[in-house]
Design a binder for these strands. Structure first.
Length: 471
RNA sequence: GGCGGCGUAGCCAAGUGGUUAAGGCGGAGGUCUGCAAAACCUCUACUCAGCGGUUCGAAUCCGCUCGCCGCCUCCA
């Protein structure tokens, strides 16, 4: 059994065969840093973070590269509007992106290259394309000549002739064909610019990904990913540039994630209906948001529903209680485990989980397996007690598998009350315990209500009274 | 106009030729509890937008119809 992935190039699920046994080279288009990122960016980031983890779980050595586009028209315009240097604006949103990724549990890539730090590589690529006859310079601009690359359109299934018919492409008299796209743009006064054989200018959007991906992963590598909107023209153009330049197959597997939609509409900055990650993680538990995003298969469109994120939080709660129980068990002996059947159930859950992940990273199905494990573990704990070694091992296994999705990170993460409240809470819990011992139920219930107002849930179990902080 | 996707329970969402159609949320009943909470147990789609067809057999394949969405332009 090998890991299967849906390859946009073939439109099919294919067994993943790495170029180098045991290793994966993976490049994902990151963000253009001219604003804070929204839930759509979050989905893409989470999805590829999980794909990376899935490979690692299977024992692959992964080299993961995710770029920042830090020079582009929108950045320049924004910077001018705000009256700050483009570089400063870009740095600000790089930092903003990283902060949001930490909140979402998205690990940093192994390499996070910025376009502005790889200008020489881009110039060299463009120069090579001119020498090979695939590109031409006009008045300080350089264009890729699409007609010279016969395989153009293979990724997106679009034929140059059909595109021409529908042409809503901006007409530029200096281009030999409307489909030709910019590799290098001449700088207008006041714009960021770098020296080049064609005069001062900056790279086109597509060339940066070709240059950086090949710089870090080689002329030919395993996986290139991004949002489905990048299939055309961005990735199509990357293939044309790269393969025209090297004569080699650029990428073996193209992976694209589906969009996040809002109501009837696609979310987009031009429509002004964006949901910023920065805002969402204030309203919701970030881990619940991550779990919510993974409950839909990565290639399917996701209709964002605010209320569902909260509901997902309740499912997460059920999992966290398990980890909390396991964590506080030491020192509280349970009865001897009834081991064997339970162990088999855990193993079966793991197999289901791994089979789902192997099948085109089917996270909804994998989560199904995990939640079944959650139920089994709760049931077993009720019987054997939280200190049972098999229970402890089962929870640990759940944690490992959850980790492949970047979930269930810590035991009761974020579930600690402010230190200054702790003493008061414990005093109230003790007082309530004493009241209960006297069978002073009204008094006990009053104290429970007071604790609830502080954000504390008290529970009386067979093993005594416990409490949980839920803010 | 071209290309692609979707329509599964109250809601979300897997499943894409053959065991009882995963899982989550919600709901109903029960066990436990002083009462709760949490947890567990049982139930909650004889049916997969509709209509035809292929097949021994289809939610799964084919055709048509209806509805929804994305890409073709910067966009995760």
């Amino acid at each position: 059994m090998s890991l299967k992935l849906h390859n946009t190039l073939t439109g099919q699920k294919e067994p993943f065969v790495p170029r180098t046994p045991g290793a994966v080279g993976m490049y994902v288009c990151g963000v253009t840093v001219y604003d804070l990122c929204h839930v759509g960016h979050a989905r893409s980031a989470v999805v590829f973070d999980v794909i990376r983890r899935a490979f690692e779980h299977r024992g692959y050595r992964v080299t993961f590269v995710k770029n920042f586009t830090d020079v582009d028209d929108k950045i320049i315009r924004r910077a001018q509007e705000e009256g700050v240097p483009a570089r400063e604006l870009a740095e600000r949103y790089v930092a903003g992106y990283r902060q949001d990724m930490v909140a979402l549990g998205v690990r940093a890539a192994d390499v996070e290259p910025k376009a502005t730090e790889h200008i020489p590589q881009m110039v060299a690529l463009v120069q090579g394309l001119i020498e090979r006859g695939f590109a031409y310079a006009v008045d300080g601009d350089v264009y890729f000549e699409v007609r010279k690359f016969p395989r153009y359109g293979r990724l997106s299934g679009k034929r140059p002739d059909e595109l021409r018919l529908g042409a809503r492409v901006e007409v530029d008299e200096r281009k030999r064909d409307p489909l030709d796209f910019a590799l290098w743009k001449r700088a207008k006064p006041g714009e960021p610019a770098w020296e080049s054989p064609w005069g001062p200018g900056r790279p086109g959007w597509h060339i940066e990904c070709s240059a950086m991906s090949m710089h870090y992963l080689g002329a030919s590598f395993d996986i290139h990913g991004g949002g489905e909107d990048l299939v055309f023209p961005h990735h199509e153009n990357e293939i044309a540039q790269s393969e025209a330049s090297t004569g080699q197959e650029f990428v073996r597997y193209w992976i694209h994630n589906g969009f996040v939609n809002l109501g009837a509409e696609k979310m987009s900055k031009s429509l002004g209906n964006v949901l910023l990650v920065r805002e969402l993680v204030k309203r919701h538990d970030p881990e619940a948001l991550r779990l919510y995003l993974l409950q839909t298969h990565y290639r399917h469109p996701l209709e964002y529903a605010e209320s569902r994120v909260g509901e997902t939080g309740r499912a997460l709660e059920r999992v966290r209680i398990l980890f909390e129980e396991a964590a506080r068990a030491p020192g509280r002996p349970g009865r001897a485990g009834t081991g064997e059947r339970f162990g088999e159930e855990i193993a079966a859950g793991r197999r289901r989980f791994e089979a789902a992940m192997d099948d085109d990273v089917n996270t909804p199905q994998a989560l199904g397996a995990l939640f079944e494990l959650v139920r089994v573990l709760h049931a077993y704990r009720a019987e054997a007690g939280p200190a049972d070694p098999a229970f402890q091992a089962g929870v640990a296994e759940l944690g490992r598998l959850g980790g492949v999705l970047g979930l269930f990170g810590g035991t009761g993460r974020g579930a600690e009350p402010p230190p200054e409240l702790r003493e008061r809470i414990e005093a109230l819990v003790r007082a309530r315990g004493e009241a209960r011992a006297r069978k002073a139920w009204a008094e006990a219930d009053r104290l429970r209500g007071e604790l609830a107002r502080l954000g504390v849930i008290v529970e009386d179990t067979r093993e005594g009274t416990t409490w949980r902080w839920r803010g």
